[in-house]
């Protein structure tokens, strides 16, 4: 709610970073053609259900969205979701929400999202999610987008993801990304502006940008 200015500033920085990273990130799985996707033997372990992506119509920042889903690992080995890509997003990252200095912040997941053997893992608002950045168009409720998920067992899964209206308070899940994030655990968050220097009073509605 507050901090429009830091938010925008941060965003610009992020987008700049995004552009630098574009070539590396943007072309990986999406263009890697379905040779893997069709290989059942490789992709069999993890199934995807309940996929959806948040629409951007009327959202605060229509260049970003997030996708959520249930990952179900039927196999006997842990499998890690390592990457994601979509033709609607210039850049895609795997994110989590985590407590940092008493505030909930969004950060890139280090090492991907592990789906333990025989277990499932829900990607959901307020938790793990696939962050879609640099969207090249509006996402309208009722349409479908494609998402390619890359797993540690070498499989790629293409998922058709319906776009739905986002029903929860946007600030919870839609904070700017933190592309160069290296927060391991004990870390100091560098505030992008003086205003944000006051420590946490509202954990949910701050658009923290963490740049290092």
């Amino acid at each position: 709610m507050r901090i429009n200015l830091p938010y925008r500033t941060t965003l610009a920085a992020i987008l700049a970073t995004a552009l630098l990273g574009f070539a590396a990130c943007g072309d990986d799985k999406a263009d890697a053609e379905p040779k893997d996707t069709n290989t059942q033997a490789v992709a069999a372990a993890v199934s995807v259900s309940e996929p959806w992506a948040r629409g951007t119509v009327g959202s605060e920042d229509p260049t970003m969205s997030a996708a959520f889903m249930m990952l179900d690992n039927a196999g006997t080995e842990d499998v890690t979701l390592e990457s994601a890509s979509s033709d609607v997003a210039g850049r895609t990252e795997l994110h989590e929400m985590a407590m940092k200095d008493g505030k909930m912040v969004m950060q890139q997941v280090e090492g991907g999202i592990v789906v333990p053997a025989g277990k499932d893992m829900l990607l959901q608002p307020g938790g793990y999610h696939v962050m879609l950045m640099d969207l090249n168009r509006e996402l309208v409720p009722g349409e479908e987008i494609n998402l390619v998920l890359g797993f540690s067992d070498g499989s790629n899964v293409t998922v058709t993801v319906p776009v739905k209206e986002f029903t929860e308070e946007e600030g919870h899940y839609h904070e700017p990304g933190t592309p160069e994030h290296t927060h391991g655990g004990d870390d100091k968050v560098v505030k992008p502006s003086d205003e944000a220097a006051t420590p946490s009073e509202d954990a949910e509605d701050d658009h923290e940008g963490h740049e290092h």
């Binding site: 199934s47 995807v48 309940e50 179900d72 899964v157 293409t158 998922v159 058709t160 993801v161």
Partner: peptide
């Protein structure tokens, strides 16, 4: 309640 069936490709 989930995971009864396995599915990979979904959409609307």
């Amino acid at each position: 309640p989930r995971g009864i069936e396995r599915r990979r490709l979904l959409g609307h």
